[in-house]
Design a protein around this nucleic acid. Structure first.
Lengths: 225, 225
DNA sequence: ATAATGACATGAAAATCCTCATTGTAGAAG
DNA sequence: CTTCTACAATGAGGATTTTCATGTCATTAT
């Protein structure tokens, strides 16, 4: 159970950190929007505690990136005073809960626990992009609601790109994510080309309105038409 | 870069936690021998900060388990007063550095950094068991110094067991580690049986003095003859 | 002890995945 | 605009991995 705390106030951050570590979560922290975005990009968190007023921007931007990347993390928004506006925008953007400063640490722990509880129950996780929907749990793919067959690696690759739609990804990153660590500094990427060809064929045959475009000299990028 | 802090003094633990988190490491903590052993069993850390005097036993036991499991984590021993005995035993057991309480947090950070530096340089990581030696970086296997060929999955499986010699491992755990998350609650384990057969054949043909025995109703276990 | 049941092993067949040789294409340089 | 070069796509073949059908072994019950 991995949590990211995004909070610029050092004292509060450490207070939260301590409480959650004591509750046996794996916790990381970020003090700024920039740092938070970077970490979210790299790691998958289960829950994010998100302050809105940050020195270099609004926490809501972090939330936007999170949703754009289709990350499944639960989000608890934390904001000074009860700025109704932020609360509404936050919940609109898909936050799971809202906590107003100041708050009791026990209250925080309870909210975190309940986010996890809800995440456990709603087993209907899915990722959608255009007319393509995938269900990671069962490794199923639906196009316009019709199921379509993908082989293991094909699914892994599609899943990878649907997590990062519209973003260019290098072949090295893709290889590491789908094939594992030991392949990272590969001398040739023929195995990617081969899988790409098959996956693209399947997507086009199934009339998906998404497409994996190549970024010459770099990698690939999933685009919606 | 993942660090585990094993320290029973709450204040010191949090001080260390804070400093290392600020240095952008991923940090987890344990207050007891029991907790530390559990976490080491499950996760792979790059560095472990290990207090010796703990409420439920000696930190040296944690170190022993670590080495028995052939984990690659660097270890910095932390001990009250400079008990020369613990220091010697610790370094004997393969600790990388030694720090005496009380110490400056800056000193700790410097030591951690240097452990990582050394780990980067020494590229000669290997795991050995009986007359079998494997080099994870290059995915090579040597038996009595003679190289032997293993296929990808075979290597992954052998590597997995050499990390946990003499310990029984369930098929579910093996599957999760070698094949990935989505396979965990598999309905049948034929794919394991198949790989097991091939790996065993190769090991016996190459005259390895290790053997993967089956633990009926549970899984497998690597034994040295 | 023997039979019955579930767990594991085995060899062969099938499916999947990767490699290779070849062809096509984008971008840079002339 | 043409040529050159590196990168990417393709199809076929080969290698690896998984599945399947069957046989063997361990454990429990009879």
């Amino acid at each position: 159970m991995k949590i990211l705390i995004v909070e610029d106030d050092k004292n509060l951050r450490e207070l939260m950190l301590k409480a959650l570590v004591d509750d046996h979560y794996m916790v990381e922290t970020a003090a700024q929007v920039r740092e938070a975005k970077m970490k979210i990009d790299i790691y998958d968190y289960d829950c994010i505690l998100l302050d809105i007023m940050l020195p270099d921007g609004s926490g809501l931007d972090v939330l936007r990136q999170l949703k754009a990347q289709r990350k499944a993390a639960g989000v608890i928004i934390i904001s000074a005073k009860d700025s109704l506006e932020d609360k509404v925008t936050g919940l609109d953007l898909g936050a799971d809960d809202y906590l107003t400063k100041p708050f009791h640490i026990a209250e925080l722990c309870a909210r975190v626990k309940s986010v996890f509880r809800r995440k456990q129950q709603n087993g209907e996780h899915f990722i959608e992009c255009g007319n393509v929907k995938i269900l990671p749990e069962t490794r199923q793919v639906l196009i316009n609601g019709k199921p379509m067959e993908l082989l293991k690696k094909e699914f892994d690759i599609l899943h990878f790109f649907m997590t990062r739609p519209e973003r260019a990804v290098s072949k090295g990153t893709l290889a590491e994510a789908v094939w594992g660590d030991y392949i990272d500094q590969a001398d040739n990427y023929d195995f990617i080309y081969a899988q790409m060809k098959n996956l693209r064929k399947r997507l086009s045959e199934a009339q998906a309105d998404i497409e994996i475009k190549t970024v010459h000299g770099y990698g690939y990028k999933l685009e919606q038409r």
